[in-house]
C-alpha cells in the first residue's frame, strides 16, 4: 500500500525540519520505503470496532497545588544557548528578507 518516493521523503523531511543532502536522501528513501511497506501490515489485523490505545495507563489530569516554587534562573536558562545576548536567546532572522 505504500511506495514512498524520493520526493515524498524530501517533503516529509522538510516538514520535520531536517535538511537532507542528495546522497542522504538517496540512502534513506530506499530504506524508508521498505520500512513503510512493512509497518503497513498493521492494516491487516485490527477492525474498526477495536478502540485505539494511546497509553498503557488510564490517565486523568494530574495537577499540583498552585504554589510558587523556585525555578531556573536566567543565567542557568541561557547557559546552554548556542547564542545569548542580554540574558536572552539570540536567534537568526525569523522573517523573509523581502
Amino acid at each position: 500500500m505504500s511506495n514512498l518516493s524520493r520526493e515524498d521523503v524530501a517533503h516529509v523531511a522538510m516538514l520535520a525540519r531536517i535538511h537532507l543532502e542528495d546522497a542522504e536522501l538517496d540512502r534513506l528513501a530506499g530504506q524508508l520505503d521498505q520500512i513503510v511497506d512493512w509497518v503497513g501490515q498493521v492494516a491487516e489485523v485490527a477492525s474498526a470496532d477495536v478502540p485505539p490505545m494511546s497509553h498503557p495507563m488510564p490517565l486523568t489530569n494530574v495537577t499540583r497545588p498552585d504554589e510558587v516554587r523556585p525555578s531556573l534562573g536566567v543565567e542557568q536558562a541561557v547557559a546552554n544557548a548556542p547564542q545569548a545576548e542580554d540574558d536572552r536567546f539570540a536567534v537568526p532572522r525569523i522573517l523573509d528578507e523581502e
Partner: peptide, 11 residues
C-alpha cells in the same frame, strides 16, 4: 492507516 491502526493493534 498508520498511527491510528497501530494504536488499535496496541489494544
Amino acid at each position: 492507516a498508520y498511527y491510528g491502526q497501530a494504536q488499535k493493534v496496541r489494544t
